[in-house]
Design a protein around this nucleic acid. Structure first.
Lengths: 334, 334
DNA sequence: GACTGGCTTGTAAGCGCTTACATTTAGCTT
DNA sequence: AAGCTAAATGTAAGCGCTTACAAGCCAGTC
């Protein structure tokens, strides 16, 4: 089989030098019309496609952005990443995505791999990680952005929302409905500043009002896990009237389990989620939750990262969340 | 800032040639213990990490597998891809993922990009695409595997399930319950052989039994779309008692809409899905659906592709689906 | 002691592309 | 028409790595 054509083959076919072909492809305005036509015809005729690796090696840029997300198994990051990706695509960048399974070692490895592959920039989720990772990024001078959280004083710029404030707002709303016995079902907080922020959001409001802290159950992500956590919560704190969940999936699981136990939601037990995934409106009653602007966040993160890559200064960016109040929260004062 | 160290820096530091360093990294058994120790120490000391692009250029292999999926926005492909990815990871391959948004042009482009980046192999979803794409893959001699469907006579090996047979089994079950007026809510069939297969599965069973064909509504993927399609179906074919949906998300949307119209599921209208996503058990009543072995399929596809890449012959592989019967289908003969 | 053969290591030629610099060409000026 | 400038193109040196081949070394043989 004929080996795939190279720049040189095109150059020969068009009767020009390789430099000219390269210019035709990368900076067409530097080549006179007539030549360009000839070259492009040769490209077409040979079915030439540039070898990315060679280009990256020579040009020291890859037009690739890396992203390491905790998991792609759950719809969780999907919408934001899709938005992230479409901005990149529009700017002729490609997305190289890796998932860490919430394991810091795997994440560090993935980051190193992305660096070795010459990612021009990297998107990270949350700030919680070994400082060495940030050192590494710095010494390799790879621009990075953190998303899904916000901290203007972080080691790299962030584009996201304030997990604690969002959860605090939801908590305040629920307390206004008369709830006093609060339980929390959270993702594991260790190494997960988003989860931690959300729990802190709850506790800070309770403590500000002089109420006793919420009972917190930590668990893995999943509907079944949410259900089990609900059982545990009922065991540990049977008087609970309000269950705030770290995300909608856990809330859906908790709700399913509550209903399986013949508890009426929201009259017997109120439940709220976080994220406003599609399933929040599928369950019955529909879930009260916090709407996270996934799409906007993904787009903003992409733009910030590209700006960073281009060498321009980047500011951290705070996005607003909104309460989405639906039927899963009861008003106890009625 | 010191530029990142290269193979040569390591060689100098260890007092050996670059060839020896390269061997230490890629074929340690070819280097004598003592030398290896010295080299590895130098690697450590300098914090050396090989430049992937240079390696790919020289070695003509990238340890990268590409995958083009229709969308990553919906949980749809997530589980299978996660499984796919973990097998790759275990074999030191990296996954380069692109999504096409169901647009054939975008898909062809993505495939070309993956090729240019030197993907050692490519995973594709479904067979429906311009034959040119297969020609391209062939001339570039890039091994490819198709998944989410099965056809032993396809242009490339496939690892998946029989969409038509799976849907036919579900249809037969529902007909046995006495349903005769059947509606289908499907994803757009054009360019989507999985969707087409599922619809054909329904129609073939009906035709085999001499029943009139199902009324088919096509729509985009999504809960809201499923709801709208349900409305349309009720308009077009008001006597329908059974709605078979191309996937669980459409089914969930249809169910929500049915309930919004005060129709009781399943007594007034029976609804079934396909895929057995997590949400199938979240809705009420729980959705009867077809269980697709996502995880198994992802793993099998990865193994098949790696085998293909290694130059070994690969057979297409058929995976079994199962009916998951839950509460959304009524028995009309009672 | 010269020779063989098996290891280990070094030498150096690329892999396909970009780009600084050199060269040629063409268009104006005077 | 000579001279000058700017635009277009060519020349060639890498980018960091792998690997065929050559060279060196040493133990074992006869």
């Amino acid at each position: 089989m004929a080996r795939t054509p190279t720049l040189e083959d095109v150059a020969d076919a068009a009767g020009v030098s390789t430099a000219t072909v390269s210019r035709c492809l990368n900076a067409p305005e530097k080549v006179v019309e007539e030549t360009r036509r000839r070259v492009l015809a040769a490209v077409e005729a040979l079915g030439y496609a540039p070898n990315f690796n060679a280009r990256a090696l020579a040009a020291k840029r890859t037009q690739t952005i890396g992203a390491v997300i905790p998991t792609m198994e759950n719809a969780f990051f999907a919408e934001g990443m899709q938005a992230f990706q479409s901005v990149l695509q529009a700017e002729d960048y490609m997305l190289l995505m890796a998932s860490s399974g919430y394991d810091p070692k795997v994440e560090a490895d993935a980051i190193r791999t992305l660096a070795a592959r010459g990612a021009d920039g990297i998107l990270l989720i949350g700030f919680d990680r070994d400082p060495e990772v940030y050192d590494f990024l710095r010494t390799q001078s790879i621009p990075a952005i953190v998303s899904w959280t916000y901290d203007p004083k972080g080691p790299v710029p962030s584009v996201g929302f304030d997990n604690a404030a969002a959860m605090a707002a939801l908590t305040r709303h629920a307390l206004a409905l008369g709830h006093r016995e609060v339980g929390v079902i959270s993702a594991y907080q260790r190494g997960n500043d988003r989860a931690r922020g959300r729990v802190e959001g709850v506790q800070s409001v309770l403590s500000d009002l002089g109420l006793k802290p919420a009972h917190v159950i930590e668990t893995a992500y999943g509907v079944a896990e949410g259900a089990l956590a609900f059982d545990q919560l009922m065991l540990d704190a049977p008087r609970t009237t309000l269950v705030l969940c770290g995300n909608d999936v856990l809330a859906a699981g908790a709700m399913r389990e509550a209903q399986a136990r013949r508890l009426h939601v929201p009259d017997d037990i109120s439940i709220a989620g976080f994220d406003d995934l599609g399933l929040a409106r599928l369950v019955d009653p529909a879930l009260s939750t916090v709407r996270v602007p996934h799409r906007k966040m993904g787009e903003a993160a992409a733009r910030a990262l590209l700006q960073h890559v281009a060498g321009e200064p980047v500011e951290s960016q705070l996005l607003e969340t909104e309460l989405r109040l639906r039927g899963s929260l009861a008003n106890l004062s009625l």
